[in-house]
Nucleic acid binder design. Structure first.
Length: 427
RNA sequence: GGCGCGGUGGCCGAGUGGUUAGGCAGAGGCCUGCAAAGCCUCGCACACCGGUUCGACUCCGGUCCGCGCCUCCA
């Protein structure tokens, strides 16, 4: 069975070419002006998992995940000090996503590293009449693109009115380059004067610089379909580039009934979530929902994911039972069919074969579930004493020791095999 | 107003025109000094109303409800 993914652009499942591809992927990363929240992690996680799965299937893959470090948001958050904030927030993002234990994408380009390429891209758009410069700004001419709206389904004439901007020929036009303003501490030289790139152009440029003018998959949050991705597509199409063939948009993370977002204030930072629940539980949590659907982040749903993670750990504490030769295909089919992780999880729960389970967990960066943490020496000693107490039928002492161990966050289990007990970290 | 997604058993969550999803929680049992873990057993679920069909949770139409985008947003 070949691998298929649902594409927003075609509104249907698209088949990937056979291995080794190549499959080049671009997943939209964050604008760095604050600590990332759990919802921001979803595209990162989905992108890394997809790359893992493709590699497991002998694909040659390249994953680009950008850092947008030039943006209105950053200037607003730190007037005259945006560069410093962007740098710090970039470090946070790398640290927090790194904490998930999934490794890193192949490239993490930053907008500030590609300004010359952005300028040259804009020059080409002007030269072909797809853009126009006015008073130090440059705008994309939406009316030149008869296909504008094909990704999002938005019709330009139906888009709600925006704040009027007298410099624009048409209110739907969007900025490619913005003239430097008083509170903005970063700016670059350009044919149109000092200034900096607009929002969407950096993604077109970073993607094409690293992946070429035509690549396989472009991912990102569902909230980026319009206008961000629509505009990326318009910019690149204007130069005759195919740009991305398959557009994957992950569903939003919901928290307290609504999309988790900084502007609504209903968010939990990724770092806090990792501290509270652990990376493994968080990853299993993401696994419980299909990537395209919204997923609810709540104590109940995350705790349930934690219990599932425990279930997998438990499998490795018990002897491996070889699975049928066909066992893998259920897992494979689930992931090949639009990367259906809830279905894949269901298949995995039936497995008692260590090698097989480990192979599957590896796809999701969860191979660490296979190894138990060693207990502190003093707890091992408690467990030894508990064992002796039990042998002496001093059950009061034995129970006291068990409670002591539990107070320290561990669980004492009596087992038949040597040494007669097992210490398991409680999660 | 425009574009789009969804409503499945206590909760999460796949899926299919007619056969068990799976997990979490809960009940009973085996095991245990008691536990824990594990194993076994247990749930007449598919928002509502019409229609198509021999038969629909699954297809079509409508209604209600929820969510996302149209403004910064993963």
């Amino acid at each position: 069975m070949s691998i298929r993914l649902y594409s927003t652009l075609s509104r249907k499942l698209e088949e990937l070419p056979p291995p080794p591809g190549p499959i080049r992927m671009y997943f939209c990363g964050p604008t760095v002006y604050a600590r990332a929240h759990v919802g921001n992690a979803r595209p990162f996680v989905v992108g890394m998992w997809l790359r893992n799965w493709l590699r497991a299937n002998a694909y040659d893959t390249t994953l680009v995940h950008n850092i947008t470090d030039i943006n209105d948001k950053i200037y607003e958050a730190a007037p005259n000090a945006s560069a410093k904030l962007a740098e710090r927030a970039t470090d946070w993002y790398l640290e927090d996503t790194g904490g998930l234990g999934l490794g890193m994408p192949d490239h993490l380009p930053r907008a500030t590293e590609m300004v010359p390429q952005i300028v040259s891209f804009i020059e080409q758009l002007i030269a072909t009449d797809h853009a126009y410069a006015v008073e130090g700004d440059v705008y994309f001419r939406v009316s030149r693109d008869p296909e504008y709206g094909r990704l999002s389904g938005q019709r330009p004439d139906q888009v709600e009115d925006q704040e009027p901007n007298p410099l624009k020929e048409d209110p739907r036009d969007f900025a490619l380059w913005k003239a430097n303003k008083p509170d903005e501490d970063t700016s670059w030289d350009s044919p149109w004067g000092r200034g900096r790139p607009g929002w969407h152009i950096e993604c077109s440029v970073m993607a094409e610089e690293l992946l070429g003018p035509a690549f396989e998959i472009h991912g990102g949050g569902l909230d980026l379909v319009f206008p961000h991705h629509e505009n990326e597509l318009a910019q690149s199409s204007a130069l005759g580039h195919d740009f991305a063939r398959i557009w994957t948009h992950n569903g939003m993370l919901r928290f307290t009934g609504e999309k988790m977002s900084k502007s609504l204030g209903n968010f939990v930072t990724l770092r806090d979530a990792i501290d509270e629940w652990g990376a493994q539980t968080l990853l299993v949590f993401f696994l419980t929902g299909h990537w395209r659907k919204p997923i609810d982040f709540s104590d109940e749903t995350v705790a349930a994911a934690g219990t599932r993670a425990d279930g997998f750990r438990e499998v490795f504490r018990n002897p491996s039972e070889p699975a049928a030769e066909s066992a893998w295909s259920g897992f494979e089919d689930a992931l090949n069919d639009d990367f259906n992780t809830p279905e894949a999880l269901a298949v995995m729960h039936g497995w008692r074969d260590h090698d097989l389970l480990l192979r599957a967990l590896r796809v999701f960066g969860l191979e660490s579930l296979a190894g138990d943490e060693a207990a502190p020496a003093d707890l091992v000693e408690f467990a030894e004493r508990r064992k002796q107490a039990r042998e002496a039928r001093d059950f009061e002492e034995a129970d006291r020791l068990r409670e002591e161990i539990e107070r320290r966050g561990w669980e004492a289990r009596d087992v038949a095999e040597a040494p007669g007990f097992r210490l398991v970290r409680r999660t």
